[in-house]
Structure formats: structure tokens, C-alpha cells
Design a protein around this nucleic acid. Structure first.
Lengths: 246, 246
DNA sequence: AGCTCATGTGAACGATCTTTACATGAGCCG
DNA sequence: CGGCTCATGTAAAGATCGTTCACATGAGCT
């Protein structure tokens, strides 16, 4: 019963040395397994090999641990979105879609973070730092949208970048949360969440008048464009994003 | 102390008479207040004036109560979406957008149901009846998308209706869950969630080649989506859904 | 060496979830 | 009407959790 605990104590001494970090890691694992709702403060302590009261030296309460995780999640999220955006290389539309895929990839690869960030039910404005981190992440999308909006086809009014960013965010979040995570992923779909989101974004961008066949902007490689065959008068490029060649 | 309990007992006798229903209602109220995570089986029992063990006569456990609520939610959801669709009257595009607004309205008006349905973390496939109810609700969107797809502009390949339905669902869910509920609604937006979703859907439909300007409907009161900044009718031909001419 | 303070422990409290044995009374059968 | 039965509710109890408190430990500074 208790030789275990004492064994652990023997291994690491009375003081853990890095309990805060250990708790965060433990919580992350637990959330990934059982969701933010099922995660337990006591469990995290047990997993770190300390008593149930120890965590209170590092976190005011369970919610603070949760929001620490969420905050860290937003930071990693921001980093991954930024990397995906890659300052709009090789061209704005391509990079923009890559951001969308990065969004989904994050939701898939880091279910615990995503859960803590978006599905744990903790108030967004509870923690100022958390809110700031969340905004920084969103600003990556926003900045990308800004660049995209600047490329809007001439002759038409520019779409507000903020609105575009919110639209893209809602699409990515909708797809991620409905189809790309946990049990939700079990809904049978005619296509993968990635394809679903990519098509959605492409159709949306086309609705804004963007050319959605990949166009090298200052770059050599010319990807094979869609075979033209439909009357261009309809304004609809032939071959939809859902059934693109290649 | 305990005169309360006895008072209640005096009022209603030893047997409650309609405890199952009372528990569902109580849970609904509690979820609306504190979210599905904060809702407590014991609380529901207390609110119904019975002992903490009584609910177990009607629900295997807390999750079954939750999924009963979710199921009922999906049924009401289906009903509201069906009513909004109104079999595609007066025209398909208008009705389709009305479905989108109904989605948001449901999320806003029935936060408890929405929470139980989409944010409570209960496994979709745990309960067959639940899954069926969920599918029936989705089928309303799917059927509407089917009709819409049939109207796809000639000359271009028809978009798969299933894909369109999934896209619309993801948009509606994304907007609802990010901007239209609880604390999330506190994120400051340049436009209301309704306007945001309406613009998003319009742009998307335009991307599919649908004509998105509303024809006169014999029903003057079609509120135009609010232009956040661009003066409408600025003379530029296509105009955006965020600032449409006409 | 000795002090101090951050860090961890154990015990304890109240709340929740859930099970178990027992109580009640509504509806049916004769 | 009288009695039986079974669905429905109760009380008590065990297990777990969040949280607090008094106390123990030992790392680092003087």
C-alpha cells in the first residue's frame, strides 16, 4: 500500500524539485485520456507521486491548473500557426490554407491542449494572461487574413480582414470540433476533415473573388491548373475544390 | 434544515409522481446556469425535492440523464431546423440561410440543450437513440443542401450535397461555439454572430456559383445583412455579402 | 551552524457519486 | 373491501474529490 509512495519519496527525496512542471504534464496526459471534465486534481498529484495537497503550493485551485494548460496551449498554437503561415510563402493563398491545416493538425495532435483551450468550459476572461495568449493566436489568423484581403480582386470592395479571419476561424473550429476529435471523429464522413476544411476554405475564398487555383506569385513552380472546360461566363471555375484533379 | 424536506414531502407525498420529468427539467436549468460540467446529479435531486438516491430509479447514472437531455435537445433542434427550412419556401437560398439562423438561435436560446448536445463531452456513439436523433437533425441540413445542390448553376459540376451540408454545419457550429454562447460571446466582434454567419454562408454559396442576391420576395421585410463598414451600393459591381448592393 | 521559508505531508471536512437494505403506497386481484 | 406486489423513494454507508490546516522537511542564505 504505502511502500510505493515511500519508494518514490526515496527516489526523489522529500521535495519533488519540479512539481509544477510535473503536474502540468500529468494533467495534460489525463486530459488527453479522459477529457478536461474527467480530469482530477488528485489524480494529477498521484501521478506526480505527491500528496493531494501538494498541488495547492503551485496552483490556487484546479481551474488555475486548467487555465495554465490552456494558456500554454495557446502559445504552442500560436507558434504552429505562425510557422504554417510562414509569412505568406510561397503565395498567400497557399500559405493561408496551410494555416487551416495547421489548425486541424493541432486539434488532432494536441487533443489535451485543444480541449483545455476550447472545450473545458473555463471562462475566457477569467485570466488576463490567458485571454492575451488567445488573442495572440487569433492575431496570426487575423494577420494572414489581412494580407489576403489586400490581394482582393480589384474592382470589388475589399472584404474586411477581421471578418475573413473570424470566418476562417469558425470554419476551422467547427470542423475540428465536429469531425476531427475524439468520438466526434467517428462520425462517418465522405472525406477527411482536412479535405473537408480545405474545400470549405477554397469555396469561401472563391466566393470572395480570389483565384483559387494555386498561383505562383514570385516563384518558379507552376502547378498544373484546373483544366478549363466550363463556360467562364458563370464565373465558376471548372472542377470544384471538392473534386480537384490531383 | 429538514422541515423543508418534510414540507415538500407533505406537499407531494412519498411518491413524487413525475420524478423523471422533474429531474430532466431541473438538470436543464442547472446546465443552463453552470454548464454540463458543473451540473450535479445530487443537485438535480435536491431541486426536485427528493433524496440523492432517487434519480437512480430513473437513470442508470449521471451520463444517462445527460444523454437523455442531449437526445431531447436533438429532437427539438430537428424540429426547429425543419420549421426554419419550411420546405425551401419561399426560395431555396433564403430558406437555407434561415436554417443557419435557426441553428444560431437554438444555440442562443437553448444553451442547456446545446451544451448537452455538443459540449458535454459525452460519446456520440454511447447511445444508439442519441446517435439516431443527432443524425435526424443533421439530415434536415443535408436535405436542404440536397435541394440547394440541385440548383447549382449549370455548366459546372454539382457540388456534393453531403459536403455542402457538412460545410454549413461546421460554419454554424463554429460560429455558435466560438462567438454565440456564454463567455465566448464576450469576445468583442465587429458584427453580431448572426451577421457573421449569414455573411459566411453567403460568401460560401457565392463560391459555389449560386446567385446570392435576394430576389424580391412579396415580403418586404428582409433585413439586409449589416454592412460593417463599406457603404452599400458603392457602385462596384459584385459587392460583397458584407456590403451588398441592392 | 543555524535560520528561514518554500515546498511537501497527513488528517480532516464537506460534497458528490453510487450501492444496498429497507420503507411506502398505488394499483391490481380476488 | 383486504391484501399482495412491485415500482418508487429513503437512509446509511463507502469511495473519491476538492480544499484547508497544522505540521514536517530540507535547500539555500547568512
Amino acid at each position: 500500500m504505502s511502500w510505493r509512495k515511500e519508494q518514490r519519496r526515496a527516489e526523489r527525496g522529500y521535495h519533488h524539485g519540479n512539481l509544477k512542471e510535473a503536474l502540468l504534464q500529468a494533467a495534460l496526459g489525463l486530459i488527453a485520456e479522459k477529457g478536461a471534465a474527467g480530469f482530477t486534481f488528485a489524480d494529477a498529484a498521484r501521478m506526480a507521486g505527491v500528496s493531494a495537497a501538494a498541488p495547492y503550493r503551485h496552483f490556487r485551485d484546479r481551474d488555475e491548473l486548467l487555465s495554465s494548460i490552456a494558456q500554454r496551449g495557446f502559445e504552442q498554437f500560436e507558434a504552429r500557426l505562425t510557422a504554417a503561415w510562414d509569412d505568406g510563402r510561397p503565395d498567400t493563398v497557399t500559405a493561408f490554407e496551410r494555416v487551416g491545416r495547421a489548425y486541424l493538425a493541432f486539434a488532432r495532435d494536441e487533443p489535451a491542449f485543444y480541449n483545455a483551450m476550447f472545450e473545458s468550459g473555463l471562462p475566457v476572461d477569467a485570466n488576463a494572461a490567458l485571454q492575451a495568449a488567445s488573442e495572440r493566436a487569433f492575431n496570426v489568423i487575423r494577420a494572414a487574413a489581412e494580407r489576403l484581403a489586400a490581394l482582393a480582386p480589384p474592382g470589388a470592395p475589399r472584404p474586411p480582414a477581421m471578418m475573413m479571419a473570424l470566418h476562417i476561424w469558425s470554419m476551422a473550429h467547427g470542423v475540428a470540433s465536429l469531425f476531427s476529435r475524439g468520438d466526434a471523429a467517428r462520425r462517418k464522413l465522405p472525406m477527411s476533415p482536412d479535405e473537408l476544411l480545405e474545400a470549405e476554405v477554397l469555396i469561401y475564398l472563391r466566393g470572395l473573388g480570389f483565384p483559387t487555383d494555386r498561383r505562383p506569385q514570385a516563384n518558379g513552380a507552376e502547378p498544373p491548373p484546373v483544366p478549363p472546360e466550363a463556360p467562364s461566363g458563370s464565373g465558376v471555375p471548372p472542377g470544384g475544390p471538392w473534386g480537384r484533379p490531383k
